[in-house]
């Protein structure tokens, strides 16, 4: 019995690892050349660091702290951004009311909010929730708004001829025809949130991957810093891949086989 999908997965995984092996080799040679583990530890030293940090449980704790902050912020951002975007796309008065604020707030990078976040929320989880939510909000909001504003007028007319009231129109026409855009926004938003959590933790937290990197930098434990960076990269890539797999459940009509 054949498993074409599984085989295809295996092949693409092999290619993926193969693609990484070149840079890994370059890193190894460079580390040999530099011969200074504070400036550039070798891959085997970092591998040892990964085992060490996993072994004492600290890495798992940091990962969980960062993930919690990202998903909480991301959740807050999506529950605010999607409804707000849809309502603004559907109802002109709301659009007029909120668009100026959104336009002015959007160019401010999340990192610029960190001082305020610390003043308002102190240190710990709360300022990080604030920052991760902020980072995810704009990609989600802007994509959802563009999607809903771009709804095909024929769909709106058809729905009105079919007797749809306001709620049905927002829920089944605007939301659903914007869903591919919203999905894009969610994916970008999660990525932004993941990057922002590290920034927030560098400054405003006492745990998490960002904090771990910062603490180890001060102790000149560069191999731990690299471990932190690699974990961030791998987890970010895993999130992206997982979302890619979810897509056929979120947007089934884009994936139906004939």
């Amino acid at each position: 019995m054949k498993h074409p999908a599984f085989l295809a997965f295996l092949v693409s995984l092999l290619w993926f690892l193969f693609g990484l092996s070149g840079p890994l080799l370059v890193w190894w040679l460079a580390a040999e050349g530099v011969a200074n583990p504070v400036l550039l530890p070798a891959p085997n030293q970092v591998a040892a660091s990964v085992l060490e940090l996993f072994g004492d449980g600290s890495l798992a704790t940091d990962i969980m702290a960062s993930l919690r902050r990202v998903f909480t912020g991301f959740f807050i951002a999506s529950t605010l951004a999607v409804p707000l975007a849809l309502l603004m796309a559907c109802f002109l008065p709301l659009r007029r009311l909120f668009l100026p604020l959104v336009t002015v707030l959007r160019p401010i990078p999340p990192i610029a909010w960190i001082p305020l976040a610390i003043l308002w929320f102190g240190l710990g989880d709360k300022p990080s929730y604030f920052i991760t939510a902020l980072a995810a909000f704009f990609p989600i909001f802007l994509n959802a708004f563009a999607g809903a504003a771009d709804v095909d007028p024929r769909h709106v007319y058809a729905a009105r001829f079919l007797g749809a009231g306001r709620w049905r129109m927002v829920r089944h026409i605007y939301l659903m025809s914007a869903l591919p855009h919203i999905w894009t926004g969610l994916r970008i938003g999660l990525g932004q949130s993941w990057m922002a959590v590290v920034t927030a933790e560098l400054i405003a937290a006492q745990s998490g991957l960002g904090y771990m990197i910062q603490a180890n930098r001060i102790n000149l434990e560069t191999r731990h810093v690299l471990t932190g960076m690699i974990v961030i990269g791998v987890l970010g890539a895993l999130m992206t891949t997982a979302l890619g797999w979810c897509e056929k459940f979120i947007l089934p009509w884009k994936h139906q086989r004939q």
Binding site: D152, R154, H155, A158, R160, F161, S177, L179, L251
Partner: peptide, 20 residues
């Protein structure tokens, strides 16, 4: 004055709700 279920319309193409 506005579209209501008194009428209905069939457009030239691509007016089905693609997500349903």
């Amino acid at each position: 004055t506005e579209p209501t279920p008194v009428c209905n319309i069939v457009f030239q193409q691509h007016s089905l709700f693609g997500w349903m």
